[in-house]
Design a protein around this nucleic acid. Sequence first.
DNA 1: GGTTTGATTCGATCCTGATTGATTCAGCCA
DNA 2: TGGCTGAATCAATCAGGATCGAATCAAACC
Lengths: 87, 87
Amino acid sequence: MLAAVADPVRWAVLDRLTDGTQCVCDLQAHVPVASNLLSYHLKVLRDAGLVTTARRGRWIDYTVAPDAAARLSAALPTAPLRRTVAS
Amino acid sequence: MLAAVADPVRWAVLDRLTDGTQCVCDLQAHVPVASNLLSYHLKVLRDAGLVTTARRGRWIDYTVAPDAAARLSAALPTAPLRRTVAS
DNA sequence: GGTTTGATTCGATCCTGATTGATTCAGCCA
DNA sequence: TGGCTGAATCAATCAGGATCGAATCAAACC
């Protein structure tokens, strides 16, 4: 899961999704990669459980998974951070 | 920096260092990789600023950098997590 | 049905980074 | 000084994942 975040493209996607739900076309406007490549990275994020999808007519909306923050923090190895976030 | 953590070997090293300062020989006893490979991963962690070193006679002690947790949290893209940890 | 648009999948290539073995460096001890 | 040990570095290999181009799928509109 950390590897899923440790990629510039996917980081940008997540950072963008942080502002709220976005359709793929919207993400494409802000993350300058080919559409099929974006689709690939979205799949990686999906497989990591960091984002969820919902089809809306012709479009597909992506949202940051509700427990993404908690799961990411749990994945970090440093104890101080774990103590800060875990609760 | 996230890429530095997103590797099983380096994750194990950081997790081990979480318990306190360790010399390389000690790490080697708990992380089953070749010594030169361990040295390589330690260099990656050093370059990422996640660990610090201190020579003690023939040995070199590794410690998690004091600001590692803060810097890692800052590197995560999800806003909720940033809010939780930042302060 | 046929076409268009949004999005994914497939196959092939390229490239970064992990791993390996051997070498080199730094400090201790006889 | 010479030999030994802990640790880092170097050059080369290899694998996994990112990237690209083309094809495919799904829904909407005509």
